[in-house]
Simulated scan of single mutants.
Amino acid sequence: MKESKLTLFIILLLLFSCEKSKENNREQEVSSNQEENILFKSDFTKTLDLNTWKVEMDSTSKSAVYTDNEKLILDTEGGVTVWLDMELEGDYEITYTRKVVLDSGKNDRLSDLNQFWAASDPTEIGMFMRSGKFESYDDMHLYYVGFGGNYNSTTRFRKYYQGEKPVLGEFLEAPYLLEANHDYEIKTICKNGKVSFWVDDVLFFEYEDPDPLEKGYFGFRSTWSRHEIGDLVVRKLLPNA
Rank of each mutant, 00 (worst) to 15 (best):
L6E: 13
E27P: 06
V100M: 03
A180T: 05
S21G: 06
S196E: 03
L203E: 07
G79S: 00
V145R: 02
L14S: 07
M127L: 15
K133N: 08
D139G: 04
L8S: 06
V233Q: 03
E29R: 14
F220S: 03
W53T: 01
Y66P: 03
K187S: 09
E56D: 04
L74I: 04
K215P: 13
E164S: 12
L48H: 02
D200F: 12
D58V: 07
A174S: 13
S59E: 11
P212G: 02
L110F: 07
G216P: 15
T81M: 13
F205S: 00
S17D: 09
G78R: 07
K20Y: 09
H141Q: 11
N24I: 15
T52R: 06
K46G: 06
G105I: 02
E164Q: 15
S136W: 15
G169D: 04
G219T: 09
E56T: 03
M129C: 14
L50C: 09
M86V: 11
L48R: 00
D91G: 11
T123K: 11
V82C: 01
V233F: 13
D112G: 07
D108G: 02
D112R: 09
E36V: 11
E23L: 13
V82M: 00
L238A: 09
G78Q: 09
L72C: 02
F171R: 00
F9Y: 09
G216S: 04
V202D: 14
K133T: 10
K5A: 03
T188R: 08
Y161E: 10
N150V: 06
H227G: 02
E135D: 10
Y160A: 00
N114T: 10
F16T: 10
L168E: 05
D58T: 07
E208L: 07
V30P: 07
Y66F: 14
E135W: 10
T155N: 00
G132K: 00
I10W: 10
D201S: 15
E89R: 13
G78M: 07
D201W: 12
D75T: 03
I186W: 14
F204G: 02
K41E: 12
S225D: 02
K194L: 05
L238S: 13
E35P: 06
G148F: 08
N152S: 05
L13M: 05
S4L: 08
K133Q: 11
N37D: 15
Y92V: 06
F40L: 04
E214M: 12
E77P: 11
L12Y: 06
L232R: 02
